[in-house]
Write a protein that binds this DNA or RNA. Structure first.
Lengths: 344, 344
DNA sequence: GCAGCGGTTTATAACGTTTCACAAGAGTCT
DNA sequence: AGACTCTTGTGAAACGTTATAAACCGCTGC
């Protein structure tokens, strides 16, 4: 009455039993045409809406999965999310997006909430991969798949960040750069750490002196931090300033690019820049940005499919799989060699 | 046993009654120190996790609200979402983001799901403002607030799009342009329609001939559509080509800008461009983009606060409020007058 | 006449919480 | 000692579904 009408109200209104209403909803083929119509009319008349909580409590799962994202402001993640949606749609699941905003507390809060909601599974790009919840959830029956990150205790889909970092740095080294800055952080994020490792390996493989590499750790991976880093670099006297920058993602790179240009540096002549992720805005930047591309939608789709599979055969033995995809370098103007650029 | 442990299991393990476990969880102050500890230990030992469905079924609301977004790929919306998060956090609510992807079917599916989940309320930027669900939900007790759109039957927070469109067009008219193209769509979106109306009004107020205005309707508001429109414009012979473009949002503008430049047009000399939303990438574009700025976070925060208020006094009489915010023009290089540009 | 038959419908027992009225003890005051 | 309070803990009744077993009904076939 006061609240929304329940199946009981519908049953009373249609002069049938509760069970019949349930049947109309769940196995319409077993109820006679006439009664079915009567019940449906009652439902429409009363504006009855199934109570998902009760449903879930009684019977099956939630038909819902969640994707906990590091930063919805970064188009990379929203593209990954598209892939997730696609895969979920295909099997009739809905996706809730949760933005941790690179905040551990929020990540924890969401994980608690999602477990309590009994979602079918959780996809996550963790801020804090050390959170015990990440191992607890699967142990208690909520599968967790790592997206764009890896962990021995979960299924995961990620792009080989070491290879990506190496790709970026090798490109710059081949361009004659030796004094390169790596900009990114926090280093506790595995993506960032791995990309840096890749950059170091490039120095090694190239036979260059890794002491020429400067690491600028940032507090986050967004445009603001990029601008800050750009200002710092531009403030250095020419001699001590790196001639190229490897950024841990495109958000940083775009901010850095913008600020560097504003402060009078020429890109790529004074400062070559390479980003990471190849977000859709990289190509449209002031100076089109060289970037390491990742198969974004594929990451999302694959991760969701793995999650769904894991949720399906929850009881049956499940082997965690690590799917590693390959990054690809897209060269654009921000790092392109010009006649002016001497070769080391 | 098989499934996750329930409060009953915890009670048995701790050798207390069910009610006591509940008390430990909900009113810890009423239970004696010793028993409380024993129960907490049992909870930890068994890895008990509250079942939110049962909780909700029995008692109160879901402590959750949802934001159904037109396109998570558009940073404008993710910024609005930040504002929503902020306001929700402040009162201890969680936010689920749902991406309708400009797809009516998906919007409907989400609305159904959310109503069944009994969320506290729904924020939405509708693809299809004609969907009956939008009026049904509030009538049945789930408050709905329009974000960046308006409707007489709901609370809403939006920016005066007519004023915004007029701002953009007036700026171009003052720059001497007469042959302007409006690019945006679908026109069924109120934002798009209103911005176009504003452009027309600018012509009227300026005493210019509105027949010089060309309308290019697009299928969506994304970069791809922008590129397509850019190609179309660039393909026109110089005489018939508009000298300026008003885009319905920045995604379109950035795509259009990129393609126009690629096809050899100079911006703003051959083609001036004004975008809408002033997303963070507008400033970092190939040619920094003039745009109509909206107070994104404020929109989200205000909308969420209104939703929360409406949900709180659900029964008490509630008057729908329309909060209209003011747009602001940010002039950058993509429309800046150069000495070369003659004045009409 | 009676067992047996689909085809329909019904009554009832869960599911895991929260809440509320009440019981069991331990003090306190007369 | 009896009548009180106060502090803790208990038991049972909801909440709105779904599933399962049983009941009903009008027939058919023997």
């Amino acid at each position: 009455m006061a609240g929304s009408p329940s199946m009981k109200d519908v049953a009373a209104y249609a002069r049938v039993s509760l069970g019949t209403v349930s049947n109309v909803l769940n196995r319409p083929e077993v109820v006679a045409e006439a009664t079915r119509k009567r019940v449906l009319a009652a439902i429409a008349e009363l504006g009855f809406v199934r109570n998902e909580s009760a449903r879930q409590l009684r019977g099956g799962g939630s038909r819902t999965l969640a994707f906990v994202v590091l930063d919805t402001g970064n188009p990379f993640f929203t593209d990954v999310a598209q892939g997730v949606q696609e895969a979920a749609d295909a099997v009739g699941l809905s996706v809730f997006l949760c933005d941790s905003g690179q905040d551990r507390r929020r990540q924890s809060a969401y994980l608690d909430l999602l477990e309590q909601q009994r979602v079918e599974g959780v996809l996550i790009t963790p801020v804090d991969s050390g959170d015990e919840r990440l191992t607890l959830l699967p142990r208690r029956g909520t599968p967790v798949v790592m997206v764009d990150a890896h962990s021995p205790d979960h299924c995961s889909v990620y792009v080989d960040d070491v290879a990506g970092g190496e790709l970026a740095a090798t490109h710059l080294l081949e361009g004659g750069h030796r004094h390169i800055a790596f900009v990114g952080g926090p280093l506790s994020l595995s993506q960032v750490a791995d990309r840096l490792t890749g950059v170091r390996e490039a120095y090694a493989h190239f036979g260059a002196d890794v002491d020429d590499l400067v690491v600028l750790e940032t507090a986050a991976l967004d445009i603001m931090e990029g601008r800050r880093a750009g200002a710092r670099l531009a403030g250095l006297p020419g001699r001590r300033r790196p001639t190229a920058v490897c950024c841990a993602n495109d958000m940083l790179a775009l901010g850095l690019l913008q600020e560097a240009v504003r402060l009078g540096l020429r890109v790529p002549e004074d400062l070559a820049i390479v980003g990471y992720d190849d977000i859709v805005f990289a190509e449209a930047a002031a100076v089109p940005l060289t970037s390491v591309a990742q198969p974004r939608q594929l990451i999302g789709r694959t991760a969701a499919e793995m999650l769904i599979a894991e949720a399906r055969d929850r009881d049956a033995g499940h082997e965690h799989r690590q799917v590693v995809l390959a990054p690809e370098l897209v060269v654009r103007a921000s790092s392109r060699l010009r006649p002016l650029d001497g070769v080391a």
